[in-house]
Measured scan of single mutants.
Amino acid sequence: LGPKYVGLWDFKSRTDEELSFRAGDVFHVARKEEQWWWATLLDEAGGAVAQGYVPHNYLAERE
Rank of each mutant, 00 (worst) to 15 (best):
E33Y: 11
G2L: 13
L59C: 03
T40Q: 08
A23G: 05
W37D: 00
D25A: 09
V26A: 06
V54D: 01
Y53C: 05
P3G: 10
V26D: 01
V6D: 04
E33P: 01
L8Y: 05
H28V: 14
G2K: 13
N57V: 05
T15C: 13
K32Q: 06
L42T: 03
L19Y: 02
F27T: 01
E33A: 07
E34H: 11
L8W: 06
E63I: 13
G47C: 12
A39L: 04
R22Y: 10
G52Y: 03
F27W: 03
A30W: 15
A50S: 08
S13Q: 08
S13D: 03
D43F: 06
E44H: 10
A48E: 13
R14N: 13
V49F: 05
R22C: 12
Q51Y: 09
N57R: 07
P3D: 09
R14L: 10
V6N: 04
D16N: 13
V29L: 02
L59W: 03
Q35H: 15
F27H: 01
G46P: 03
G7Y: 05
V6R: 02
S20G: 06
R22W: 09
K32S: 07
G46C: 08
Y58M: 08
E63Y: 11
A48C: 08
G46H: 04
G52A: 04
D25P: 01
E33Q: 08
W36F: 12
Y58I: 04
V6Y: 11
F11L: 02
L42D: 01
L59I: 05
V29E: 02
G24C: 07
D43M: 04
L19K: 00
T15R: 14
L41N: 01
G47V: 14
L41K: 10
L42I: 09
N57Q: 10
H56F: 13
V29D: 01
Y53R: 10
W37Q: 00
Q35M: 13
A45N: 15
K32R: 09
R31E: 07
D43P: 00
A50I: 07
D25Y: 07
P3A: 11
V54C: 09
R14K: 11
V6F: 10
E63L: 12
L8E: 05
A30S: 15
W36D: 02
E33S: 08
Q35L: 14
Y58W: 06
Y5E: 00
F11P: 02
Q51N: 09
A48W: 08
R62A: 15
R22F: 12
S20K: 02
A48T: 10
G24H: 02
Y53L: 08
A50L: 07
A30V: 15
K12W: 13
Q51D: 09
R22A: 09
K4N: 10
H28C: 09
F27R: 01
A30K: 11
R62T: 14
H28R: 09
L19V: 06
L59A: 02
V49D: 03
H28P: 02
G24K: 04
G52W: 07
A30T: 15
N57H: 11
A45S: 13
D10T: 05
L59Y: 03
K4R: 11
E61W: 07
K12S: 13
E63R: 09
Q35N: 14
D10Q: 03
E61C: 10
S13A: 15
G2P: 12
V29H: 01
E63K: 12
A60W: 09
L1V: 12
G2C: 14
H28I: 15
W38E: 01
W9L: 08
G52T: 01
V49E: 04
A23K: 14
D25Q: 07
G24E: 04
E17A: 11
D25I: 06
S13F: 02
E44Y: 06
K4S: 10
F21R: 00
G46R: 03
D10P: 06
G24F: 04
A23P: 02
A45D: 14
E18D: 05
W38N: 00
L42K: 01
K12F: 14
R14Y: 09
K4V: 15
V6I: 12
D43A: 03
V29G: 00
P55C: 06
E17C: 14
Q35T: 12
V49M: 09
G47F: 14
V29N: 01
F21M: 02
E33C: 14
Q35P: 07
K12L: 13
E63G: 12
V29A: 02
T15W: 08
G2D: 12
T40D: 02
R14V: 10
V49G: 04
D10G: 04
T40V: 15
R22T: 10
A50D: 09
K32H: 05
D10K: 04
P55E: 08
Q51A: 12
G24Y: 03
E61Y: 11
W9N: 05
E18W: 14
E34K: 09
G47A: 14
P55Q: 05
T15M: 08
E18L: 10
P55T: 04
G7F: 05
T40R: 02
A48H: 09
W37F: 06
P55L: 07
G7N: 01
F27Y: 01
K12Y: 14
A23E: 07
L42M: 06
R14I: 11
W38L: 09
V29R: 00
H28N: 08
A23S: 07
D10R: 04
W36P: 00
R14Q: 12
S13L: 03
R22Q: 11
E33N: 08
K4Q: 14
V49Q: 07
D16Y: 07
V49K: 08
H28L: 15
P55Y: 07
A23W: 06
T15E: 08
A50T: 07
H28Y: 15
A48S: 10
Y5V: 03
N57W: 12
L59N: 04
E18N: 07
V54P: 00
R22N: 11
L19C: 06
D16Q: 12
W37S: 01
G2Q: 14
Q35C: 14
Y58T: 04
W9Y: 14
Y53G: 03
E33L: 08
W9P: 01
S20D: 08
R14W: 08
V49N: 04
L59G: 02
E17D: 13
L59H: 04
A60T: 11
K32E: 03
F27L: 11
V49R: 07
W9C: 12
A50P: 01
G24N: 05
H56V: 11
R22V: 11
L1M: 13
R14P: 05
P55I: 07
E44M: 08
E61V: 14
L8C: 09
R14H: 12
D16C: 10
E61Q: 11
W38K: 00
E44C: 10
P3W: 09
F11Y: 15
F11N: 02
G47R: 15
D43S: 06
A30F: 12
V54S: 03
F11R: 05
H56I: 09
D10F: 09
L41E: 00
R22H: 13
V49L: 11
E17T: 12
V49A: 06
P55D: 05
L1K: 13
R31W: 14
A39G: 03
D43C: 01
E18M: 13
K4D: 09
A39W: 05
F27E: 00
G46I: 12
Y58H: 04
E63T: 13
A50Y: 05
R62G: 11
K4A: 10
P3Y: 09
Y5F: 09
E34V: 10
E18R: 05
R31A: 08
G47N: 15
D43L: 07
L41V: 04
T15S: 13
L1A: 13
A23I: 05
V29P: 03
Y53A: 03
S13E: 02
R31Q: 07
F21L: 01
L8A: 03
R22E: 07
Y58K: 04
A30Q: 15
E44N: 10
E63S: 12
E17K: 14
G24V: 01
K12G: 06
A50M: 08
G46D: 08
P3H: 11
E61A: 10
P3I: 14
F21N: 00
A60Q: 13
F11D: 03
R62V: 15
A23M: 08
G7D: 04
K12D: 14
G52N: 03
E34L: 10
D25H: 03
W9F: 13
G52I: 03
D10W: 06
D16P: 15
T15I: 08
R31V: 11
K12P: 05
N57K: 08
V6T: 06
G47L: 14
S13N: 07
Y53S: 04
G47Q: 15
L41R: 06
A45G: 11
L19R: 02
L41M: 09
F11M: 02
E44V: 08
L42F: 06
W37E: 00
G2N: 12
S13P: 06
A45F: 14
A39D: 00
E61I: 15
R14E: 13
L19H: 01
V26F: 10
D43G: 06
Q35I: 11
S20F: 02
A48D: 08
W37T: 01
D43N: 10
S13T: 02
A45Y: 14
E61P: 14
R62Q: 15
N57L: 06
